[in-house]
Amino acid sequence: MLPTAADMPLFELHHTVTPTDVNPLGVKGIGEAGTIGSAQTIVNAVVDALAPLGVKHVDMPLRPKNVWQAIQNAKE
């Protein structure tokens, strides 16, 4: 015997609203919160590393050809 969706008890749903003060929107991540910031952290690190070359922006994904192209574009 395995419990299924039909075996769920009745429950009431409430929300708690506690805005964070560490960002302008007051929003927090839920679920896979750890993955939310990682991509932009890495992209920002790459843009920071390339800043001396004049690069201000790189679109994801950071494929080698995209990073190379961003450097070429900054040279022009």
Partner: peptide
């Protein structure tokens, strides 16, 4: 898909 002509030449 993996590179433009210029990138591959590079």
């Amino acid at each position: 898909l993996y590179g433009s002509e210029e990138y591959k030449a590079h």
